[in-house]
């Protein structure tokens, strides 16, 4: 056991992994929220074809391992459409970061669409009826009345999904993304300090997710204070 030596040598690598993990997770969650909202609207739509599209999307993402999806996207798709990975060529560069972002976003979006749907359905029907009776459009009612209330309901599940996405980004080490696990693996390869290095990696994830949990608890508290539940 030599934590001191590991800390000294591994920290720069692991921290660059942490940076990448935060970057790709934040970007994917942002895209995922938008994707989730759109998918959720599709699922609640009256148009049958939109509902079917959304259902197939969620079905595929939920029913297959993310590792396999990442492999298909990173290794498979470039073969299919002849994308290049060589930065020297002036074509689009399909890096592990791009493929990883697509994979994570698709996953986050699928799960979040279910979360949003349950939230929207949990808002009492009378709320939208009241808005419609005043002449508000369906869209305006959604935007101003239903979604803000649904958002409050789904915050705990949403934060849970954020945490899952952050942890799932570790799977992207398999497609060579230089995030925390990959950096740790490389350091271990040179030093054989399995225990110390992986503990360090675990602590990094714990730190990121803890910050998220603290923020969410703060938001929940604020919302509860500003807007108590209707009896």
């Amino acid at each position: 056991m030599d934590f001191a030596r590991m800390f000294q040598n591994a920290t720069p690598y692991i921290l660059s992994g942490v940076k990448l993990c935060i970057e790709i997770s934040a970007l994917s969650l942002l895209i995922g929220v938008v994707l989730g909202l759109i998918t959720c609207m599709f699922r609640l739509s009256k148009v049958r074809i939109l509902r079917i599209i959304a259902e197939i999307y969620v079905w595929i993402i939920r029913g297959t391992p993310m590792l396999v999806q990442a492999m298909i996207i990173y290794f498979g798709i470039p073969q299919l459409v002849n994308l290049t990975r060589d930065p020297s060529e002036e074509k689009f560069v399909f890096t592990a970061f791009v493929a990883g972002t697509i994979t994570l976003s698709l996953n986050a979006g699928a799960y979040m669409s279910e979360i949003f749907r349950s939230g929207i359905q949990a808002v009492p029907k009378g709320q939208s009826e009241a808005a419609r009776s005043l002449g508000m459009t369906k869209f305006g009612t959604m935007r101003k009345i239903v979604i803000p209330q649904a958002f409050k309901i789904v915050i705990p599940s949403l934060v849970n999904q954020f945490i899952i996405t952050i942890k799932d980004s570790s799977i992207l080490s398999f497609i060579g993304l230089a995030e925390i696990v990959n950096e740790a693996k490389q350091y271990v390869g040179a030093t054989y300090q399995y225990f110390e290095t992986y503990i360090f990696a675990a602590l990094c994830y714990l730190a990121i997710t803890s910050v998220l949990m603290i923020i969410s608890r703060y938001i929940e508290k604020r919302l509860k204070y500003a807007n108590k539940e209707t009896k």
């Binding site: 709320q127 005043l134 002449g135 009345i145 209330q149 807007n227």
Partner: peptide
């Protein structure tokens, strides 16, 4: 817009 409605459960916007 021309037809006001009042509901049994009030339905004031909770947010």
């Amino acid at each position: 817009e021309n037809i006001g409605m009042v509901f049994q459960q009030f339905n004031l916007f909770a947010n």
